[in-house]
């Protein structure tokens, strides 16, 4: 990860009860909503596309060392599950019991798709072949918001463009993980 520049936490982050799962349903719903917003904003700021819950539980996101409080892993799990339900996250592990990794969509795949497609059009890169590596990890896209995007997330995003007929992803036989994409 990039060296974390200071993220402006919301005031509620310094409020100790925020780190305890509230038993009252309506209170918890409200609390969970605030946590979701915080997770999305934090990941967007840190340009973090993938979250490993066991690691994140000890990071500043869920662990406020200043007030000595941290959100329990089970609660984190619940928050992420709510985000998954709303299409703002995606579990990366198939087994329900061991879910630990997820993609965080601070832009939905459709929004990302639009962003990338617009970026391609601005540079008149339609109809030319780009490798996926080139698109997200090379100097070409330096400074673009999707620079450094998780490879799996990129696949998801591109597949929405493919289904709209705006792009085609392909690879040569011997290099399945070194795919290319052509935008139309």
């Amino acid at each position: 990860m990039d060296s974390p520049t200071s993220f402006q936490f919301p005031p509620v982050y310094d409020f100790p009860p925020f780190f305890t799962r509230q038993p009252t349903l309506s209170t918890w719903q409200d609390q969970a909503k605030q946590w979701q917003t915080l997770v999305l904003n934090y990941c967007r700021h840190q340009r973090q596309f993938r979250l490993t819950l066991s690691e994140a539980a000890n990071s500043e996101l869920f662990n406020n060392t200043a007030i000595g409080r941290k959100l329990p892993l089970a609660a984190i799990h619940e928050v992420i599950q709510l985000m998954v339900d709303q299409g703002r996250a995606e579990w990366l592990d198939d087994k329900k019991t061991s879910r630990n990794q997820c993609l965080i969509y601070w832009h939905s795949p459709e929004e990302w798709a639009d962003l990338i497609y617009q970026w391609i059009q601005d540079r008149a890169l339609n109809n030319s072949v780009l490798t996926l590596y080139e698109l997200t990890h090379d100097d070409l896209s330096q400074g673009a918001e999707f620079h450094g995007m998780d490879a799996l997330m990129l696949r998801r995003v591109l597949s929405t463009l493919v289904s709209k007929g705006k792009a085609q992803v392909f690879h040569n036989d011997e290099a399945a993980n070194e795919a290319g994409v052509k935008f139309f």
């Binding site: 072949v129 490798t131 085609q168 036989d173 070194e178 290319g180």
Partner: peptide
């Protein structure tokens, strides 16, 4: 293999370029 959609607009030249770029 298998990654090609129903309407294939990838030409052999595209594949050659991809090889070079990879």
């Amino acid at each position: 293999m298998g990654a090609n959609g129903s309407k294939n607009r990838i030409t052999p030249q595209d594949r050659a370029i991809l090889d070079l770029k990879v």
